[in-house]
Design a protein around this nucleic acid. Sequence first.
DNA 1: GCAGACTTGGAAACCGCTTTCCGGGAGGTC
DNA 2: GACCTCCCGGAAAGCGGTTTCCAAGTCTGC
Lengths: 330, 330
Amino acid sequence: MVTLEDVAKQAGVSLATASRVLNGSTRQVGATLRARVEQAADELGYRANIAAQTLARGASNVIGIVVHDLTDPYFAALADGAMRAAATEGLLVMVGTTHRDPEQEIAYVATLHAQRVRAVLLVGSRVADPGVTGRLREELARYQEGGGRAACVGQDLLGVDTVAPANRQGAAALARELAGLGHTRFAVLAGPPHLVTAADRCAGFTEALDSLGLPAPQVIRGPFDRDGGYAAAQQVGDATCVFAVNDVMAVGALAAYRERGVRVPEDVSVAGFDDIVTLRDHVPALTTVRLPLKDMGARALELALNEDEPIVVEQVAGEVVLRASVRRMA
Amino acid sequence: MVTLEDVAKQAGVSLATASRVLNGSTRQVGATLRARVEQAADELGYRANIAAQTLARGASNVIGIVVHDLTDPYFAALADGAMRAAATEGLLVMVGTTHRDPEQEIAYVATLHAQRVRAVLLVGSRVADPGVTGRLREELARYQEGGGRAACVGQDLLGVDTVAPANRQGAAALARELAGLGHTRFAVLAGPPHLVTAADRCAGFTEALDSLGLPAPQVIRGPFDRDGGYAAAQQVGDATCVFAVNDVMAVGALAAYRERGVRVPEDVSVAGFDDIVTLRDHVPALTTVRLPLKDMGARALELALNEDEPIVVEQVAGEVVLRASVRRMA
DNA sequence: GCAGACTTGGAAACCGCTTTCCGGGAGGTC
DNA sequence: GACCTCCCGGAAAGCGGTTTCCAAGTCTGC
């Protein structure tokens, strides 16, 4: 590997001068030497060793993003938003996927801490397990004590800057819209109870129905993914309207209905949550609650990088989008 | 930040001993001292500085993956496969997205080189531009001279280990199947001519038709994404069967037809390429050529890490999957 | 009881770069 | 022409680890 010393030697200058020319310094270097150094670096194919720079500077230009699953378009959109924002700041991105294992998430924080990344973004629902959350908080605290910065997309449970989708309110607004269409018997494909996002959406929906004086929905638990929605849909009773707590579950539910010859929305209405972009061509078009995922990802990065002391928690409102998958009751 | 020196001091041992205890060394350390060091590290919340380790060891535990667009499920699947493989090797992953800008790809190779990553994976179609390809090869060569390892998922144009989908053959097989259903008038939504993947698929399809004695298809160029497929579909003439060179374009085409009231497959048959998993619930189900994307990503990482000298190029066959989006002609 | 082979702990060199601190020369002022 | 600044180049001290090389024990076997 070509080192800065090789370049300096070849150019006949000191290490200091070579460093100043090649790796942005505030100090000026005379035109002659500057040219010599640049030429030498070019001839030798020099690439600065960033590990060494990081060590010497005491600061890296890398951030870490931890998501549950990159192949889930929800996380892909969030990650993409954050990564674009990082790119404009000249930051590199280290991505970790936990596949929904909270222990993995803690381990990633430790690893990214060891990497001395500038910031870490924890993207995705928190879990309703005080033990796990506590250990994650400890790990984050250690990291932050050392000057690390952190932010979260999800629930404000970690004591760090957070972009928090208004899951309860969004689900409640959706419930009111659906009730406004004349539905009275609902089912909720609720996902796993320990996932706070799923629980909040379910709770918001249920509470809104209650405050409208409507009967409580049938609540069906299960995995938070497409197959979970598919399976849960099989258990729906006589509801005329089914709310899946996220879009990919809703897609699973639609598939289950299609296979069984149940027509949507004629026989049953279906709604989701998130407004995943890649679903825009789905048939029937899915009624959902839109979340500005890319912006949320970008915003989380911004918050993490922001030096301000008070912890910022930003609620992000969801917008109900009515589409063909629901119908008005006669 | 807590350093190894702090730990050593607290434990009353030398730096060397502390290092040996905490960061995997071949050397043994006595039980007493070992315990003292571990306790000290724990009390202080020590996390090794990986930048320093990388520098001292001369080797990092990070790999780089460069893709076009993470929100495209094709790349998400490929990246996920590679990332899972990396995780089992204990490697961290740095992800770069180029948004189809070849210059960005070159820049990422340089940056990842500077990061001294163990390997870089270039995922996605090459472009038919010898100038760009040449510069990318140069950049890769520089990196490899310094001991870096590289692999590519796409075409064998870079002189590195490559996982190469059999685009021509897959498209040809698809053409034969579709012809076997009785279609004779075809259109190809061909994507941009400079993308080798798009061009190969188009060529394979066209050649197969030719060797079957069928008339040449109508070829419509355009962007390689959903909107490109949507737009291209508007220009199709009297074809009874449309081949979109990838699945997301096919989805765009299906959307265009749906809006215009053209029935698929009754009025026109549509096929894609890739077999994107998240499309499995699309209606109508898309006929396509299946590529084992996750495996390909994992395999590329394996090849990159593999020390063998001769450059390996692995063809990956695609499997034609006939589904509801095509029909047999009377 | 002792030479020789193993173990185990520590001192110090080194990884590649940044940056402080010095010093010498050029340019400006009176 | 003397004096002061400024400007710019280089020497060297880190940054936080790893690892080589020594030295001092600790075990063996006879």
